[in-house]
Amino acid sequence: MNSTIRLTYRIIRSALDVNTISFLILLPVGYLLIMGLMMGSIIHSFNYGGSNLSYVSFIAPGIVADQILMGGSMAGWVLWSDKRTGMLEQIFSMPFSRFQYQLSNLIAMILVTFGGALIMILVAIPFISINITAYGFLLVFIYLVLGTLTFGSIMLALGATVRSNQVFNVISNVMFFVVTFTSSVFYPITSQTPRPLAMAAMLNPLTYVVDGIRGAFLNTSGVADVYYIAVLVTTSAIFMAIASLTYRRIKLSATV
């Protein structure tokens, strides 16, 4: 078996125990069903992109998109804890390159995002109206990958630099909620959205992932996707560069 695949397997095996998996699944399922169906009783249906939509159909693609934060935060956590438990140094003394380790972190987080997204789609399907094409699936795939690379790289940079457990958890939890709630996961960003919130949403890469995936679900994709994807390619490139810089600075190394 290829080295990177073995490392990826190890990351997933060591990071995802039953408790973590349950949390990763139950939290978004809770949002989807509780928020989606409960709010549905006060927001019957509303006009979005020219058609009438139930609230649960509106937030389902948002919850799917939100899975990029799950995958991303897992990878950051793995790096942080490998540093802490000595596994990083041990793995570096084994027949793997440092690039392979970081690559397998990226692959592992994308796989976790996909796993989460698939579960959310399956849970949501009985409750939502969905009109996705093969091209739409391709778009969902691209958005999930780019979104995971963006947020995963932020988390990897955090994992590489932060030392204490508390600091890592606090920052990652705060980021998790701020990012989710300043994006278009739970509400559309329209001309009526308060200015600061609209600004925050515009600067938040998750918004582009959500809007892109929502478009794919409702078969309303169009030229806007080019813009969304360009933004996400840029953010993933920037944050991957930062992640790689902080990764190289992890302290084992003597000066040469």
Partner: peptide
């Protein structure tokens, strides 16, 4: 690294397994 075995002074293990 393919041909050596290394037991570092620093402890290491997968703590949740």
């Amino acid at each position: 690294r393919k041909r050596i075995g290394v037991i570092l002074q620093q402890p290491s293990y997968e703590w949740n397994l």
